Computed example of a mutant assay.
Amino acid sequence: MSSEQPFRFRFRVRYGECDAQGVVFNARYADYVDIAINEYIRTLFGDYQRLLDQDLDIQVVSLTVNWKAPAQFDDVLEARIRAGRIGNTSFTLHLEFYRYGDDKFIADADITDVMIRSSKMEKTPIPDNIRARLEAGAPGVLISHAGEHIVASGQAS
């Protein structure tokens, strides 16, 4: 990823997300990607309903996850998101997951969504205004659901 701070989303690993080995169960990463992407989309567009009100929606067509290290119960993970390829009707977002505190690289993922016309359930070109927001991203934005203490400077303690 480039040196510019990406969009970041923090969340805490819950006990029920771990498997018999005591680490996050692999299938949970699809949930983590979905939750992080929803926060990213909300940041870009203000509210998912704004897409739906335009008769637009997005559908996942590909999700690839690569694991680098285990995450465990009560770890705070930080998803860092940047836009990848933005095509005519689809776009790819790249996510990297790090353990907050020691910055251990846990996993990365690429998710490709296709833009659809909701009323017809057919793919449609990405409108220029949406393309522009996807291209701009949300650099430097931090959303946290982890419950860590954020001090006035914006840094967690």
Results as ranks from 00 to 15, higher is better:
residue 15 Y to V: 10
residue 116 I to Q: 01
residue 57 D to Y: 10
residue 126 I to C: 01
residue 9 F to S: 07
residue 149 H to Q: 14
residue 49 Q to D: 13
residue 102 D to G: 11
residue 144 S to G: 11
residue 157 S to Y: 02
residue 81 I to L: 09
residue 33 V to H: 14
residue 117 R to P: 07
residue 44 L to F: 02
residue 136 A to M: 03
residue 59 Q to S: 11
residue 42 R to W: 00
residue 130 I to Q: 00
residue 88 N to K: 10
residue 27 A to Y: 06
residue 94 H to P: 03
residue 99 R to M: 05
residue 56 L to K: 00
residue 155 Q to A: 05
residue 76 V to R: 07
residue 32 Y to H: 07
residue 67 W to H: 15
residue 92 T to L: 05
residue 1 M to C: 12
residue 150 I to L: 13
residue 120 K to C: 07
residue 98 Y to G: 02
residue 50 R to F: 08
residue 149 H to R: 15
residue 95 L to R: 09
residue 16 G to A: 03
residue 90 S to L: 13
residue 20 A to S: 13
residue 124 T to L: 09
residue 25 F to G: 12
residue 7 F to S: 05
residue 130 I to Y: 03
residue 27 A to R: 05
residue 98 Y to T: 08
residue 67 W to R: 14
residue 102 D to C: 05
residue 66 N to W: 12
residue 97 F to P: 08
residue 150 I to Q: 07
residue 20 A to C: 13
residue 136 A to F: 01
residue 52 L to H: 15
residue 140 G to H: 02
residue 112 T to K: 08
residue 57 D to V: 06
residue 4 E to H: 11
residue 33 V to P: 01
residue 61 V to L: 05
residue 153 S to R: 12
residue 96 E to W: 13
residue 81 I to N: 05
residue 4 E to T: 15
residue 8 R to M: 06
residue 119 S to P: 07
residue 54 Q to P: 13
residue 118 S to H: 01
residue 38 N to M: 01
residue 109 A to M: 03
residue 149 H to T: 15
residue 157 S to N: 06
residue 124 T to H: 11
residue 60 V to T: 15
residue 156 A to G: 09
residue 129 N to M: 00
residue 96 E to C: 11
residue 120 K to D: 09
residue 117 R to N: 02
residue 25 F to E: 10
residue 93 L to N: 08
residue 45 F to H: 06
residue 82 R to Y: 12
residue 109 A to E: 03
residue 1 M to G: 15
residue 104 K to D: 12
residue 83 A to W: 06
residue 136 A to P: 12
residue 112 T to D: 04
residue 119 S to K: 00
residue 46 G to D: 06
residue 28 R to H: 13
residue 59 Q to K: 15
residue 113 D to N: 13
residue 21 Q to E: 02
residue 101 G to C: 08
residue 71 A to L: 08
residue 123 K to A: 11
residue 117 R to C: 04
residue 137 G to W: 09
residue 50 R to D: 06
residue 25 F to S: 15
